[in-house]
Amino acid sequence: MNKYNFAFFDEQSKREIRRALLKAVAIPGYQVPFASREMPIARGWGTGGLQVMLAIVGKKDVIKVIDQGSDDSVNAVSIRKFIKQMTGVLETAETSEASIVQSRHRVPEVPLTGEQILILQVPIPEPLRETEQSELRAKRLHAEKEYSGVWLSLFEQIMKYGCTATGADHPTMVHERYVMSPSPIPRYDNRKLNDCAALILFGAGREKKIYALPPYTKVESLAFVDRPFVSESMHGKICRLCGAEGVFLDESVQAAGAGPFYECNDTGYCRQRQSSKSRLDRGEKSGD
């Protein structure tokens, strides 16, 4: 017996979050403040993404939840279980079958379609935070399109390390207006945000901000003219499970002596490739 309203929230709460979402879609890259709710998980553990999910999920949706590319990590499993318990919707591990994908720090390898929505969990939505601690002043800088601080952070990295050293969360310029934190996705995923067919929603629960990229928004990764943006190189590395090349791989260390091995970071994608490979091996034709 479920004593909670559909999707955990009362209807007024959902409405408030949806209003913030509409505004966010209307102004791509702009951080809309919203009344972040208390959730049954701690702030900073994906409450932003979860609240966005609960506000938009409908009875016919099929959901996929990933954490750092994995469908099976504790965080992904408990969030998925919670949504299922509160809504009764179907779940999947395959990106192409999902209508809503909630993700922590990865954009799935399978290209998203116009029928899908990607929700990204955001720890720190403010790209100016490193150089401007005051929220009020940061808002003013956004209003005046004054992003020297973000550029300065990148410049300082080049001075220190010889190249921009954003391991993840490399700042992006949205539609030539707002500089936006793409959430801590690897630089490899930044290009997937540009001109993406799916609607992408960002939720930061602890920081109480929502922002969005409507389909086919121009998203540029910030780079100096003489230091082009480079994503992580996966050149010459192959997933040992499915043999995929050119995708985002995790590096693991083996016992002494042997070199490191690589596996797809996106486990759903890897599993799908493995199963279609074994079908082919058994002589079945794909699509049968």
């Binding site: 020297s148 100096f224 003489d226």
Partner: peptide, 27 residues
């Protein structure tokens, strides 16, 4: 000055603010 940024970075801040986007020119 921004005390935790390099001296070159401090000067670049003003150049960046004035539209500088070339690392080599600014350094």
């Amino acid at each position: 000055l921004r005390m935790s940024f390099s001296s070159i970075g401090n000067i670049a801040e003003k150049l960046i603010a004035a539209g500088g986007r070339s690392v080599d020119a600014m350094t």
